[in-house]
């Protein structure tokens, strides 16, 4: 009796979360799966069309496939973010006076609101009056070159976004930094006794020890890249020449501009599957390079 009552009370206490989960998370997810097989224009009831949405998307060479390609292009950012973030973390790991200030400075960009950063970078990347080209113009002038138009140029718009994101790499730097400080000092001492220099210590002690964190950042990076939206929505709306029409932006256009909610749902599920595959690939390879302490390997 008492057991039952306690159980009941337990359920009651978690019920706000349960109701929220079933009503606002699980139901919409399942509904979107159903709608992805429908011609659903939001304002009129959905009509079952089978695989038509998926077929239309996968054969759409004008928008869907380019938007997927644009998004995959952004994956270039991941290794760059890894190298830059890790290098910065290694530099910021030195015990020198005022290191706290440097850590703060490099962390700061990553906690700024995305919208504010986007508007700021619109000015930095401005081809004529931007900070970046103001620096590049005198540097390139002796070679008779002109700096790129960045967001105004379809060839440079994606690299411009990558550059902008790398500026805010501080978030992962902090995570790397935390894990760097967890590497046991005795491993370094042992390596030193074996005659290892700074390079070998980094390669053979630091990297394996922080590999789980690199792995974590990589997975998060993959997921984040597939959902790339806010920056392009604010800064370029997909242009020029659809060069920044990323997957999530095209999904949004389908849903809220063209009222093709069914197709947008189908896009969401394709996105889910793609993210799943990408994550699985990273997971599969992880056994080879991720080292967990206490695991036999």
């Amino acid at each position: 009796m008492r057991e039952r009552q306690r159980n009941l009370q337990g359920w009651l206490f978690v019920s706000p979360w349960l109701v929220g989960f079933f009503l606002f998370t699980l139901y919409p997810i399942l509904a979107s799966l159903y709608y992805s097989f429908c011609d659903y224009r939001v304002l009129s009831p959905p009509r079952w069309v089978g695989l038509a949405n998926y077929v239309a998307l996968l054969t759409d060479r004008d928008y869907f496939l380019p938007s997927l390609w644009n998004t995959l292009f952004m994956l270039i950012e991941l290794p760059l973010a890894l190298i830059i973030g890790l290098t910065m973390a290694l530099l910021l790991n030195h015990k020198i006076p005022g290191i706290g200030i440097f850590r703060t400075i490099y962390y700061l960009p990553s906690i700024m609101p995305v919208v504010a950063v986007a508007v700021l970078w619109l000015w930095v990347l401005n081809p004529q009056y931007g900070l970046l080209n103001a620096v590049l113009t005198p540097l390139l002038a002796p070679f008779g070159l002109q700096p790129p138009g960045w967001l105004a140029d379809p060839k440079w718009s994606k690299p411009a976004f990558i550059m902008m994101d790398l500026w805010a790499v501080g978030g992962s730097v902090v995570i790397y930094l935390a894990s760097l400080q967890n590497v046991p000092a005795h491993l370094y001492e042992a390596a030193e006794i074996d005659g290892a220099g700074a390079w070998h210590k980094t390669l053979n002690v630091t990297l394996p020890m922080i590999s789980p964190v690199i792995f974590y950042n990589l997975i998060m990076g993959v997921i984040w890249t597939f959902q790339y939206f806010t920056q392009t929505f604010i800064m370029t709306q997909g242009g020029p020449q659809n060069s920044t029409l990323f997957y999530a932006l095209y999904l949004f256009y389908n849903a809220f501009r063209d009222f093709r909610m069914g197709r947008a749902c189908a896009m969401a599920w394709i996105l889910f599957i793609l993210t799943l595959i990408a994550t699985l690939i990273v997971f599969r390879t992880s056994a080879r390079w991720v080292y967990y302490e206490g695991e036999r390997g």
């Binding site: 401005n126 009056y129 138009g149 140029d153």
Partner: peptide, 10 residues
């Protein structure tokens, strides 16, 4: 286009 776009972006 490139000239005009760059100018307009400013």
């Amino acid at each position: 286009a490139e000239e005009v776009n760059a100018f307009q972006a400013g």
